[in-house]
C-alpha cells in the first residue's frame, strides 16, 4: 500500500481549516473590497475631473472610462502592500498554525508522506492568492459596469501611468485577457512570499513569528532594491554591477513581472499580430520584460520553498 490520501483530499483538508478559521471568506471579502475601492475611487476622481472641466468652461461629452479600467485599477491596488500583508498573514497561519496547535503531530502520524502535506499547503496558499486577486478583478468589473458602462473612449488614458496600456488596446476581449493575465502575474508575484513563509513557518513554528520575520525579509529586500537602484544611477564604482543585480531582487523581479500584463503585453500583442513567433522570441525586450522577471520570481520561490520543504520533511514533530 502506498500513500493513501489523494492530493485533492489533502487540499480540501487545508481549505476546511482556513474556512473554519474564517480566513477564506476574509480573503475573498478583502479582495472584493479592493474591487469596490477601485470602482468608487475612479468614479470619485471622474466626478472631480468633471467639475474641474466644468469650472474651466471646456465641454467634455466623451465617456472616457469603461468597466475594464476599474478592473485594472483594482489589480493595481491588490498588488499593493496592504493586500500583500493580508496574504502574508494567511500564509503564516497556513504554514505555522498546525505546529502551534500541536495538530501537526496528528497529521504526520497518519499514512501520508510529509512532502504531500507540504505540497497541499503550497497549492492552497497559491489558490487563495489567485482567488483574492480574481475577486478584486471581478468585483471591480461588475461595479465598473454599473458605474462606467461597457464602452469608453480609452484613448485619453494614454499618458496616464499604470492604465496607459489600455489606450493602445482597442479590442475588449484582448483587454479582458490581459486583465486575467494580471491575476496570474499577481499570483506569481505572491509565490516567493508563500515560499518565505513556508521556510520561516517551519523554522519558527509560530504564526506570529512567521508573519513578522517574513515581513522583515521582504522589507530588507525592498531596501536592498532601493540601495541598488540609487547605486546603479550613481557614478560610484560597481554601478554597473548594481544595475545588473537590482532586477534580481524579490522586489525588482516581482514589480517587473506584474507589469507583464500591462505595457509588455501591449507590445507583445501588437508585435504578435504582425511578426512571427520566432522573431518575437528573439526580441531582446522579451527577456528583460518577461524572461528575467519570471525567472527571478521562480528562482526565489524555488529557493525558499525547497528550504521549507527540507525542514518540513526532516525536522522532528512534537
Amino acid at each position: 500500500m502506498s500513500d493513501r490520501s489523494s492530493f485533492s483530499l489533502l487540499c480540501s483538508a487545508e481549505f476546511r481549516k482556513l474556512r473554519g478559521r474564517g480566513l477564506l471568506p476574509a480573503v475573498l471579502l478583502f479582495g472584493a473590497a479592493h474591487g469596490i475601492a477601485a470602482g468608487l475611487g475612479i468614479r470619485a476622481l471622474e466626478l472631480l475631473g468633471g467639475k474641474a472641466l466644468d469650472a474651466s468652461g471646456v465641454e467634455s461629452s466623451r465617456d472616457l472610462l469603461d468597466f475594464t479600467v476599474a478592473g485594472e485599477v483594482a489589480l493595481q491596488l491588490a498588488a499593493a502592500p496592504i493586500h500583500g500583508f493580508a496574504m502574508l498573514l494567511l500564509f503564516a497561519i497556513l504554514w505555522a498554525e498546525d505546529f502551534s496547535l500541536g495538530t501537526m503531530a496528528m497529521i504526520v502520524s497518519r499514512p501520508v508522506a510529509r512532502w504531500r502535506v507540504f505540497a497541499a499547503k503550497f497549492t492552497v496558499g497559491s489558490c487563495c492568492a489567485a482567488a483574492s486577486l480574481l475577486m478584486a478583478l471581478l468585483t471591480a468589473l461588475v461595479l465598473g459596469t454599473a458605474l462606467f458602462g461597457l464602452n469608453g473612449d480609452l484613448s485619453a488614458l494614454e499618458s496616464i501611468p499604470l492604465v496607459g496600456w489600455m489606450a493602445a488596446l482597442p479590442s475588449l476581449p484582448m483587454r479582458l485577457i490581459h486583465l486575467l493575465s494580471g491575476v496570474l502575474a499577481g499570483t506569481l508575484v505572491l509565490l516567493p512570499a508563500l515560499g518565505i513563509t513556508a521556510l520561516l513557518g517551519n523554522l519558527s513554528r509560530s504564526p506570529v513569528l512567521t508573519l513578522f520575520s517574513s515581513l522583515l525579509i521582504l522589507l530588507a529586500d525592498f531596501f536592498a532594491h532601493g540601495i541598488l537602484s540609487i547605486w546603479s544611477n550613481s557614478q560610484l564604482r560597481g554601478a554597473e554591477l548594481a544595475e545588473m543585480v537590482q532586477p534580481w531582487t524579490l522586489w525588482g523581479s516581482g514589480r517587473a513581472l506584474f507589469k507583464i500584463h500591462g505595457p509588455w503585453a501591449e507590445s507583445w500583442t501588437i508585435e504578435a499580430a504582425s511578426v512571427q513567433t520566432a522573431e518575437l522570441v528573439n526580441d531582446p525586450s522579451l527577456w528583460s520584460q518577461l524572461g528575467q522577471p519570471l525567472l527571478g520570481t521562480l528562482i526565489w520561490t524555488l529557493l525558499f520553498t525547497s528550504l521549507g520543504l527540507l525542514l518540513f520533511r526532516s525536522r522532528d514533530v512534537s
Binding site: R4, R16, G102, M106
Partner: peptide, 27 residues
C-alpha cells in the same frame, strides 16, 4: 495513535476535525 494528548482545531466542530484528519488517511 495519540502521543502526548490529542490536539484539535478548537474553532471547528468535533465532526469537522474528524473529517480533516480523515482526509490525511485517504478519506
Amino acid at each position: 495513535g495519540i502521543v502526548e494528548g490529542p490536539r484539535f482545531y478548537p474553532y471547528l466542530s468535533g465532526r469537522e476535525n474528524l473529517r480533516i484528519f480523515a482526509a490525511y488517511s485517504g478519506g
